[in-house]
């Protein structure tokens, strides 16, 4: 078993040698990810694990991918997407150009879901979705827009519950075990690495989606990231969080107004 002290040693190594700062992640979650990876890769001692993470660049790619959580789905929380479709995007549709940031996009399922809604509202042609993640390898997957066919039944149900208007299968072609999503969707996406812990604001957006990313951060880091978002959202723009995340305890929360029952806030 790896103890708290060893976790700290490892995370300090990672910061010093690779420039990624995990020290403000929620301790129990990050520890669990580390222990999981240690077991998955059959390390025999902490010393060996530490040495490999520190010195092996190829292994560090895997470390980064496994230590962060990359579980996501299309149209997760259908009622959230319903609210985007009915309450948020029609308002943004009155702008000449819509800039959206999906922060922590992982393998891209949310970016594609969003593009589908924009397309159905006839807004995709004037939208640009910036999809970013700390992790270069998940972005490679996101660019391809190919998701396991076995998940599509669930995604299709989510889509219909979210108020989807079409036959979901019109958006992809089945290719062996994968569903390849239409390139008209990804043509409006820009993929780039961005580390919410250390990177700055890079544009102004009318909508930022960051769902189920902040749960892995401690409170201090959450507030830093809210400040980063605040400096990246236009006046009257929107911020969307995961179903168990909240702006509530952030000092500037008063400058935002909640949109109905969903975890969506509008900057006043």
């Amino acid at each position: 078993m790896i103890d708290n002290e060893q976790v700290e040693i490892l995370l300090n190594d990672v910061l010093e040698n690779h420039g990624y700062d995990f020290l403000e992640y929620s301790p129990a979650s990050i520890k669990r990810r580390i222990i999981r990876l240690y077991g998955l890769d059959n390390f025999v001692s902490f010393a060996e694990f530490r040495y490999t993470v520190k010195t092996d660049k190829q292994y560090f790619k895997r470390f980064l991918e496994e230590i962060t959580v990359n579980v996501t789905e299309m149209f997760r929380d259908p009622s959230f997407y319903k609210s985007l479709r009915n309450d948020v995007l029609p308002v943004l549709g009155t702008y000449p150009f819509i800039r959206i940031w999906v922060a922590g996009c992982s393998t891209g399922e949310e970016a594609y879901s969003l593009a589908i809604v924009l397309k159905e509202l006839n807004l995709l042609h004037k939208s640009l979705i910036y999809a970013t993640d700390i992790n270069p390898s998940v972005l490679e997957k996101a660019k391809k827009g190919m998701f396991p066919l076995s998940y599509l039944k669930q995604y299709s149900e989510n889509y219909l519950q979210s108020g989807g208007l079409k036959d979901f299968s019109a958006y992809y072609t089945a290719n062996y075990s994968l569903a390849k999503f239409d390139e008209s969707l990804s043509s409006k996406m820009i993929f780039s690495t961005h580390n919410l812990v250390s990177d700055h604001s890079f544009n102004e957006f009318q909508l930022i989606l960051c769902r189920n990313v902040l749960i892995y951060f401690d409170k201090g880091l959450q507030h830093k990231v809210f400040n980063l978002f605040d400096s990246s959202i236009e006046k009257l723009g929107y911020l969307a969080l995961g179903s168990k995340e909240s702006l509530e305890f952030w000092p500037k929360a008063r400058e935002y107004k909640r949109v109905k029952m969903e975890k969506i806030w509008r900057k006043l």
């Binding site: 929620s26 301790p27 129990a28 669990r32 990810r33 959580v69 749960i215 995961g242 168990k244």
Partner: peptide, 15 residues
């Protein structure tokens, strides 16, 4: 659902 050393709750959407 995880419990932190300071007895606060962390949520996790992993596998």
């Amino acid at each position: 659902m995880l419990i932190e050393e300071d007895r606060s709750i962390s949520l996790d959407y992993s596998e």
